[in-house]
Design a protein around this nucleic acid. Structure first.
Lengths: 120, 120
DNA sequence: TGAACATATGAACATTTATTCATATTTTAT
DNA sequence: ATAAAATATGAATAAATGTTCATATGTTCA
């Protein structure tokens, strides 16, 4: 079978029907951007460690820093991002702020991810 | 209850038992690094789009580039990374190389991720 | 009120990383 | 063998991002 070539978006292509089908069936750009955003948030060792620590139980910032051997500032900056992504929540007790996981989606994703990691 | 302060790793902390428990119960650094690695790989819009496209069906590099309106070079560079992460596999048909998903872990992770995205 | 402490945050710096451009490699077809 | 086409890749550039340092904010306690 001879590949037929068309020009789409200044790219040569071989199978235009597949291209059309792909474009039609793909999720919205919005959803995919959101998806990439979540994974980007989880794609950092420090944040993964923070989330795993919090999955064991709530911790205040300084304990989190101590447990993971990180500076208070580094932890605080990352918690800010995790908060914005609604992955963690917090409660204040005086001047101490306790952080915990916002829902169990993270735990689920971690389990799925570990399956891939540990089988590879 | 008065918080008792200890010094651990040059960090003040409030609840040393929690710190110990956290350290004890956390997954290995290796596993967590691997986990972060997977998520980092998925944490890029271009790669997410490529993987979603391939989840619909196998595609050659130039069709992938056309379908996503990307340069051949950009796609090829990303496929290299996805290949190294064992997220995609390929088969050669003459000078055309067809890529597809290596397993269905990606699809599972995408579904889980979209749940978080679409409810937030 | 003032001192000490827990946390948050802005700016600077260093590192990582995605894309582009040019070119190499490999295969097909004449 | 040569030309054309599909893919891969190295180097360079630009942008994003994580950490550190210094400092601000807010709370407790004397």
């Amino acid at each position: 079978m001879q590949p037929v070539h068309y020009d789409v978006c200044e790219q040569r292509c071989i199978n235009p029907e597949r291209i059309d089908r792909t474009r039609r069936d793909m999720s919205s750009h919005e959803d995919l951007a959101g998806l990439a955003g979540i994974f980007k948030m989880l794609g950092d060792l420090t944040r993964v460690r923070i989330l795993e620590a919090l999955s064991i139980g709530e911790l205040c910032v300084c304990d989190l820093a101590a447990a993971l051997a990180l500076t208070q500032s580094a932890v605080s900056h990352q918690l800010r991002l995790l908060r914005a992504a609604r992955l963690v929540k917090y409660r204040k007790d005086g001047k101490v702020v306790y952080y915990s996981l916002d829902d169990d989606h993270v735990t689920t994703l971690f389990k799925q991810g570990l399956e891939h990691v540990q089988q590879g």
